[in-house]
Simulated scan of single mutants.
Amino acid sequence: MSRIVFAWELGGGYGHLGPFRPITERLVSAGHQVTIIAKDIARAAVAFRGLDVTLFPSPVKLSKAVPYDPAPSTFGHLLQNMGYRDPLELNAMIHVWRNLFQVTRPDCLVLDHCPTGLLAARGIDVPQFTFGTGFFCPVDEFPLREMAPWRPMDKEERIRSESQLIDRINTILESNGQPTIARIGEIYSSVTANLLTTFRELDHYPYRQQGEYLGAWSATNSANNRLLPETPWPEGDGPKVYAYLKPHKSLRELLMWLSGQGLPTLVVGDGLDGAGLSKSLRSNVKLVSHHLNLRSVGETCDLAIMNGNHGTCCEFLLAGRSMLHIPLTFEQAIFSRRTVELGVALDASPDQPRQIIQQLSALINSGTHRQAAQDFASRHASFRAENGIDRCSQRISQAL
């Protein structure tokens, strides 16, 4: 029996936990001991319910960075916002991660959006994997490129900023007797392998040369998919619309427009009806508070609306469905742009209700985007989530 530690530090939602659930099922069945170190232990308890795993909370920055960069250009700037600007705070987080690894004594580490965990693990002689979408695993180059074309930054400024960050990190690593780094990307390139739960054409870093692409499976469409309810489509006329959204400024106007158009619409999300929104909608729009069988939804809907959610988007692309993205976070904005460049989606600002409705109207009438989504589905017609899950499990087992 081997001790496997899965760690999650940054980001939010079940998208960091759900995809590892079926991996954990296989590892536990094989007799391994799995420990989960999670940013959100309440979500982790739900995601791994019924499995014999040990839970620990991950050390994360709780307060907002001062100064805070509201428009980070590179991955390094994201790290600055997450505690890497203050050497005392960074040292404390690395120290706690090292304590956790001493307690759990891992034979293998699997880290999802966990840069500080990766730094703490430097020098630990066990297989180490990164796990997650491309966004969580920047390409190893110096200086780091801008993550988004709409946030350009002078190369000399990127060199200066990243060099300062590297010096700050290395001071701490040297004090711990750990191997230092020459580049921020080296944190990710020095592991056993980068297990990318995405498809190459959807990678946040489209110029990546290395990495093992496993495809994607959503948090709700793994082995428990058969337990999810089928799609209860409401009555209505026109294309069936599936919306997976979080509350945002333009949500009411969007749903009122869908209601007025009479389109049969399913809306899934937490906290969507806090203001009694459903009372203002016609029967063709149905708000649902629980997850649905995405495979069934993908087969029966005509298009989807979401916030740039990677896993859900992949499910619908595999079903050949085009979509509208209303991104709420930087990562979602980058991913949405990738799908727009691929021709399978349109995007809009959450603060611009007219733009959202215009883009949705264009998408409903667009055969081009529908065809591009169907082309994606055809290219990946042989993909099965179970195959990606098995490959990932086998990769970890082989390393052990």
Rank of each mutant, 00 (worst) to 15 (best):
M1R: 05
R3V: 01
L27I: 01
L27E: 01
H32M: 09
A44C: 09
R49T: 05
A65I: 04
S73Q: 14
L78M: 10
Y84R: 00
L88D: 14
M93K: 12
W97P: 02
R98S: 13
Q102A: 15
V103W: 03
L111D: 00
C114G: 04
G117M: 09
Q128L: 12
T130W: 06
P149S: 12
I169C: 04
I172T: 02
L173A: 03
N176T: 00
R183C: 07
Y188K: 07
T192V: 04
A193T: 07
L195G: 04
E212A: 07
L214T: 01
P229H: 08
W233Q: 13
E235C: 09
E235Y: 04
Y242V: 11
Y244F: 15
G260C: 05
G260S: 08
P264H: 03
D270R: 15
G274D: 13
K279M: 05
L281W: 01
S283M: 09
S283A: 15
N284H: 06
N284I: 10
L303F: 10
G308D: 07
T312E: 06
C313G: 14
E331Y: 00
Q332D: 06
T339Q: 11
T339A: 09
P350E: 07
Q352L: 02
G367V: 03
G367E: 10
Q374Y: 01
Q394T: 11
R395T: 15
